[in-house]
């Protein structure tokens, strides 16, 4: 019970800070935001020249930032390997045994 109250208070504190911060952020949807810089401009203007495909999002995930996508395929691989390993290892013997025996 105490744990729940402490967690709730911590989350309320965090929430106050985060919401206060939200009011000071760059305005939502404003074309003059810091994120709309030369970075996104290059993706939009040169995508045909650079990658030769019209879908900019696909161009980013499979070419500009393909290394991230490789990492992400690795996450999927890690997840499936983990699930198979855990389910296979616990399938029959050893289940429910305690550690110190």
């Amino acid at each position: 019970m105490i744990r729940r109250i402490v967690a709730t208070i911590m989350i309320l504190l965090l929430g106050t800070v985060l919401l206060y911060m939200t009011s000071e952020m760059p305005r939502f949807g404003d074309p003059a935001n810091p994120t709309n810089n030369e970075l996104s401009a290059r993706y939009m203007e040169d995508v045909i020249e650079d990658v030769n495909i019209p879908n900019i999002v696909t161009a980013i995930i499979t070419d500009y930032r393909a290394y991230d996508t490789l990492g992400e395929a690795t996450v999927l691989f890690a997840a499936i390997a983990s699930v198979l390993a855990v389910l296979a290892m616990h399938s029959d013997s050893g289940r429910g045994t305690k550690l110190d025996e």
Partner: peptide, 11 residues
């Protein structure tokens, strides 16, 4: 089009 994008997407 798009070089290795096709094989990567397929994979």
């Amino acid at each position: 089009t798009g070089g290795f994008i096709m094989p990567v997407t397929l994979a």
